[in-house]
Simulated assay, not measured.
Amino acid sequence: MTGQWSTHGIELLADRVVKRFRPCTDGEPEREWRALTVLGQHCPDLAPAPLRADLAATPPTVVMARIPGTPLRGSAVTVDQANALAAALAQMYASVPGPVAERLPPRLWNEHHATRGIRTRHEQLRRTAPSRAVRHAVAEGMRWLDLAGRPPAGGPDLPAVLGQADGNLANFLWDGSKVRVVDFEDSGRSDRAYELAEVVEHVSAWVDSDLDIPHFLGLFDLAPAELRRLHESRRLFALLWLLVLALEDPARARNPAGTAEHQAARLLALLD
């Protein structure tokens, strides 16, 4: 979810990347370093190798190896790229042992955090004048959330995995045959269905890219509990993104005009 907010600065060097974090409240530098270390132990070559960290510095700094590849964001994602993206995520979910994943802190923007974010932004939206399409979709989304009683949650049928926790397609680098993953500052304990929901509902999947979502999701053999979790989590992320887009300052918009209305239609389709 961090695609809308900058929490760090990056220095790209020939052989390494230096990531300097701005003041953080949720342990983002520690999360980044922890995930890189875990993946370096269990799934090398999928993410940057961790080189050095000074988490007590001002600013906290994480240094990692620079890996090859071009971000998937910004173009039509080909079948080969979608297949490679699915393979990379499946490898990450399967490679980190369950007991290791269980000991991780919950990822940021988990279902409880996302629900709080939705309700806060809904109150903010009341003080604005969104379009009729946006108002209608938000009302339907909030009705769904209120009837659900609580956000979709994990359980014994949803094994813990290391969640990268930022589905922005810019975080997936294609080198011509393989996809590698970067940006783990929100990472933590999650489950496959929730992580996949974030990828396919991230605004980057459609606003300036084109990911074939049915094809991509069809590459995962999800159990019935995971399919239910996926469906409800997609609704949750779609509602959150609609509120984020509806509150975007037109003078400093990151997205094209009409993006919020397009997102409104996407949410209604998921609620149908």
Results as ranks from 00 to 15, higher is better:
Ser177Gln: 14
Gly163Ser: 13
Pro214Val: 03
Asp157Tyr: 06
Asp221Asn: 05
Gly167Met: 03
Asp212Lys: 07
Arg103Gln: 15
Pro152Phe: 04
Asp191Gly: 01
Gly176Ile: 07
Leu158Trp: 09
Arg126Ser: 14
Val203Met: 05
Leu104Ala: 02
Trp144Ala: 05
His202Trp: 05
Thr115Ala: 12
Glu201Lys: 03
Glu140His: 10
Asp221Met: 02
His122Met: 11
Asp146His: 07
Val179Ser: 00
Phe184Arg: 07
Glu201Pro: 09
Pro105Phe: 00
Leu217Gly: 12
Glu123Gly: 13
Glu185Gln: 13
Leu211Met: 10
Glu123Trp: 15
Arg180His: 06
Trp206Met: 04
Gly163Trp: 01
Ala137Val: 10
Asp175Pro: 01
Trp109Leu: 08
Asp146Asn: 05
Asn171Leu: 11
Leu108Gln: 09
Ala193Glu: 01
Pro151Arg: 03
Gly167Pro: 13
Leu173Asn: 06
Ser190Trp: 00
Gly117Gln: 12
Gly218Ser: 04
Arg135Phe: 15
Arg192Met: 12
Leu125Ala: 02
Val203Pro: 02
Gln124Pro: 01
Gly155Phe: 07
Ala197Met: 08
Gly155Met: 08
His113Arg: 07
Val207Asp: 04
Ala129Val: 15
His136Ser: 08
Val138Pro: 00
Pro105Ile: 03
Leu169Val: 09
Trp174Tyr: 14
Glu140Lys: 06
Asn168Trp: 05
Asp191Arg: 00
Gly167Arg: 00
Asp208Thr: 14
Leu222Glu: 04
Gly167Gln: 09
Gly163Arg: 00
Pro151Gly: 11
Arg143Gly: 03
Leu222Asn: 10
Leu108Trp: 02
Ser204Tyr: 08
Phe216Asn: 07
Asp166Tyr: 08
Val138Ala: 01
His112Ala: 14
Arg143Asp: 15
Pro105Met: 00
Leu219Thr: 02
Ala170Met: 08
Ala170Lys: 13
Pro159Phe: 12
Ala170Gly: 15
